[in-house]
């Protein structure tokens, strides 16, 4: 048999393996996005049943993490990837961990939402929380898009937007403290709202992590714990 032909064959199979894993990760991402949307809907519409079902559906996310994890280990063991391919696998394993954590946060939102459904709803229908929720949804969506497109420049922009989420979190937190000081009877309810807001802020952080893994995949530079401006100088010469 022609050795060149064989190597071509294995590399094609390898590519297919990588492609399949990527599609699975993105399907998991889609599921997490939906969980987030349903959790927020449960909160805003006071639908305790929906909140419960979000909490239960988190099992699906966990199961997907296990399958993809196993698949990645299998690829590492059988194909022994190097360079870019190795980075893709390593980053994928990290991305699914973050996605699973986002799933856990969604579960928290679901539980808090079904608890809040029986409480009196605020007159503004959680306007601030909804706004923060929308920003976080977009953040997760765009982070996953950056992964699908392998677009490091876009990933950097998305990672920057996590700042906005953090700021909004701060301001809602201050607002909640004021509520609690004004009316002691509201503490229980406000704590549940804080629980949701905190989960959203954490989801924003996980989305930022995903963006950093995308930059790592494309440029081979680990940009965790570095300021985003110095990251820009790393990737700009290459991303044009």
């Amino acid at each position: 048999m022609d050795p060149a032909d064989l190597s071509h064959h294995t590399s094609r199979r390898f590519n297919e393996d990588l492609e399949r894993v990527r599609t699975r990760v993105l399907a998991m991402g889609g599921l997490v996005e939906e969980q987030l949307l349903r959790g927020l809907t449960a909160l805003v519409e006071g639908d305790s049943q929906l909140g419960q079902s979000v909490a239960i559906e988190d099992r699906k996310v966990n199961a997907l993490e296990l399958t993809i994890d196993e698949e990645c280990s299998r690829i590492l063991a059988t194909r022994a990837p190097t360079a870019g391919d190795l980075r893709v696998i390593v980053a994928t394993i990290k991305i699914i961990t973050d996605l699973e954590r986002i799933g856990d946060e969604c579960e928290k939102i679901g539980i808090a939402a079904s608890r809040l459904a029986v409480a009196e709803r605020p007159s503004d229908h959680y306007r601030e929380v909804r706004h923060l929720g929308k920003a976080v949804q977009d953040l997760v969506h765009d982070a996953l898009d950056a992964f699908a497109r392998m677009d490091a420049g876009h990933a950097l922009n998305v990672a920057r937007r996590d700042r906005i989420v953090d700021d909004e979190y701060e301001s809602i937190q201050r607002q909640c403290i004021t509520f609690m000081m004004e009316d002691v009877r509201q503490i229980r309810r406000t704590l549940d709202v804080m629980w949701v807001v905190r989960a959203l802020e954490r989801i924003g952080d996980h989305a930022k992590n995903i963006c950093e893994y995308v930059i790592y995949m494309v440029h081979g530079k680990d940009v965790r714990h570095t300021s985003l401006d110095s990251v820009e100088s790393v990737i700009l010469p290459r991303s044009g």
């Binding site: 990527r22 599609t23 993105l26 889609g30 996953l144 497109r149």
Partner: peptide
């Protein structure tokens, strides 16, 4: 669907990730 002009050649379910659509 929030696609970009450079998305030609990418799998549709990588970008349109609604579980029901997948």
């Amino acid at each position: 669907l929030r696609l970009a002009t450079s998305d030609q050649g990418l799998r549709i379910d990588n970008l349109v990730r609604y579980p029901e659509f997948v």
